[in-house]
């Protein structure tokens, strides 16, 4: 009876030690798991972030007229054939892949499964549109779209002089002796410009041709993937 009681206290001690060992095991597994769970390689992630920041920076190799997060569509097309390591020296010696909306732009190796950094950008492209309206004195012609610049080409019939071209009510071109030839004028990019022509005779269609140079943008996602 007394021996059974002695064993009971020893048994309790054994169970207690077992529980402590179990708790220790759980703690060690959790610690190990925390380190094993560092699946994002810090160096790759850092390089991907840096390259993505460079790609969309205002002074980056792809930026359009020094604007941040605006990429030049032409520069992006050229990136396919350009030397990526020359444009992004930090990518030299690493497997880096640049994609735009899932389409591979440039790569310096197989970066599948590497750390990724994404940026939302605007991609610009040039757009020109020609108009050949019939102008009458006192009527305004409003462009169908906004534009940055306008090429005005005048070839009036013999005996007719184009004296003034007004854009948005302001005089843009004027010559009392008669205007002829091609001129480039800047227009407001914030609303469609209106053009009025003053001439001392009738102007058939095609006497004044307008070519509007505008810019269209689309939203896209740039993704940089790096695997060391």
């Amino acid at each position: 009876m007394s021996r059974a009681r002695g064993q009971a206290s020893l048994l309790a001690l054994g169970v207690a030690l077992l529980l402590v060992t179990g708790a220790l095991g759980v703690a060690l597994t959790a610690t190990h798991g925390a380190f094993a769970g560092v699946d994002r390689d810090a160096a790759d992630a850092r390089l991907a972030d840096s390259l993505a920041a460079r790609a969309v920076a205002a002074d980056g190799p792809l930026s359009d007229r020094g604007r941040a997060n605006v990429l030049d569509g032409t520069a992006i097309r050229d990136l396919r054939t350009a030397d990526t390591a020359a444009l992004f020296p930090a990518a030299r010696g690493h497997a880096v892949q640049f994609t735009l909306d899932g389409e591979v732009l440039a790569s310096t190796g197989d970066a599948t499964g590497g750390a990724t950094s994404r940026r939302i950008v605007l991609v610009t492209s040039e757009k020109t549109r020609a108009y050949g309206p019939r102008f009458k004195n006192g009527t305004r012609f409003v462009l169908h779209e906004r534009a940055d610049a306008l090429d005005v080409t005048m070839a009036p019939p013999n005996g007719t002089r184009v004296t003034t071209v007004r854009i948005d009510g302001r005089i843009a071109l004027r010559d009392p002796q008669g205007l002829a030839g091609s001129y480039r004028v800047a227009v407001s990019p914030y609303r469609p410009a209106s053009v009025a022509v003053a001439a001392d005779g009738p102007l058939p269609a095609g006497s004044v041709v307008l070519v509007a140079h505008g810019e269209t943008t689309r939203t896209a996602t740039v993704e940089v993937r790096v695997r060391a």
């Binding site: 810090a42 160096a43 850092r46 920041a53 205002a58 002074d59 020094g66």
Partner: peptide, 26 residues
């Protein structure tokens, strides 16, 4: 393990600090 992970982070933080210090517009 902790030292190696911290080393990676310190290197990344240092590189980021240098890159961030450069002004965007010349």
């Amino acid at each position: 393990d902790a030292a190696a992970t911290l080393g990676d982070r310190v290197l990344a933080a240092g590189a980021l600090a240098v890159e961030d210090a450069i002004p965007n517009t010349p």
